[in-house]
Structures are given as structure tokens and as C-alpha cells.
């Protein structure tokens, strides 16, 4: 089936099997390997991407054909050239990552969180990121990272 998906602003027209999971579409058909896969049971969240800007989905739990005509944002779409997104900067500043495997999913879940909720408290961040597992950091520095990014981003209204 031929689909058209806009990923990080670029349109990809590809012929895919209906059973192709969005995660593998992004990784193997679009060459965007920042989106990872860590489980088969929709449990880990390392595959999270944003669809149409404001909904975070586990891209292993959606078929690529369902993204036909939609816009997907992946971790590769966060930075504007050399300029890191405040979330990326904050994860770096606050040691919000170790092995980096969960990081793209964490960033994308946080990205959508901040769209809905520009100033989340620590408990709200813990709640919002509970669909994303991390085996390395114990989450504490991830929470701090999101708080720093929120503070950085809040003076001005968020823009796409």
C-alpha cells in the first residue's frame, strides 16, 4: 500500500505492507533510527513519537498505514539545525540520559507533555512519563531535565 507521511516536515511516499509498524517504517523506510524498539508488548516507550504535533504514540503500537496523511515528529525533528530543542539541551545539562536508548522516547513524551502542560510539577512529570521506561537513570535527572526545559520554554508561548 502506498502511503504519504510527513515526518519532521519532509514528505515520505513509500510502499509498505499493512503490517509494517510505524516504528519500523520510520527506522527502515525513512532511515530515522532515533526511534527505538525495546519490547513487543507496548510497555517500554522507547518508540514514542508525536503524531500531528500533540499526541504521543508508541510507534510500535500503530501501523504505518495509519499514519497515511498525518504528520509525525521524531527525535530527529526536535533540533533546528545546530540549535538544540530546550528539552534536548536540558537532558544534556541535567544528565538526563545514560545509555541513551530510552532518550528519544523520553524526549518525545516530554515534548507532547509540554504542549499540553507548559509548567508541570514534579509529580505531574512523573505521572506523564510513566509510559516510558528507563533502565539506567532512575528517572530523577530526567524529571529535572523536563523541569529545566519547561522553565526555559515557558516565558514565551510554545511554537511549533
Amino acid at each position: 500500500m502506498i502511503i504519504r507521511v510527513t515526518v519532521n516536515g519532509t514528505e515520505f511516499v513509500r510502499d509498505v505492507e499493512p503490517r509494517t509498524l510505524l516504528a519500523y517504517f520510520l527506522r527502515e523506510h525513512c532511515g530515522l533510527t532515533g526511534t527505538h524498539v525495546g519490547c513487543d508488548s507496548s510497555s517500554c516507550g522507547v518508540c514514542v513519537v508525536a503524531i500531528d504535533g500533540d499526541r504521543a504514540v508508541k510507534s510500535c503500537t500503530m501501523f504505518a498505514v495509519q499514519a497515511d496523511g498525518h504528520e509525525i515528529t521524531t527525535v530527529e525533528g526536535l533540533a533546528q539545525g545546530a540549535a538544540l530543542h530546550p528539552l534536548q539541551q536540558a537532558f544534556w545539562d541535567c544528565h538526563g540520559l545514560q545509555c541513551g536508548y530510552c532518550t528519544p522516547g523520553m524526549l518525545m513524551a516530554s515534548y507532547v507533555l509540554l504542549k499540553h502542560h507548559p509548567n508541570p510539577s514534579e509529580p505531574e512529570i512523573r505521572e506523564a512519563l510513566a509510559g516510558n521506561l528507563c533502565r539506567c537513570t532512575g528517572y530523577q535527572n530526567i524529571i529535572t531535565s523536563v523541569q529545566q526545559a519547561a522553565a526555559e520554554m515557558s516565558p514565551q508561548p510554545v511554537e511549533a
Partner: peptide, 11 residues
């Protein structure tokens, strides 16, 4: 607030 997890709930 307690069904599945916050990402699953968005779908």
C-alpha cells in the same frame, strides 16, 4: 488516570 499508561491512554 489509572488505565494503562499515559502514552497508551493517548490512543
Amino acid at each position: 488516570a489509572v488505565v494503562a499508561d499515559p502514552i497508551v491512554r493517548q490512543s
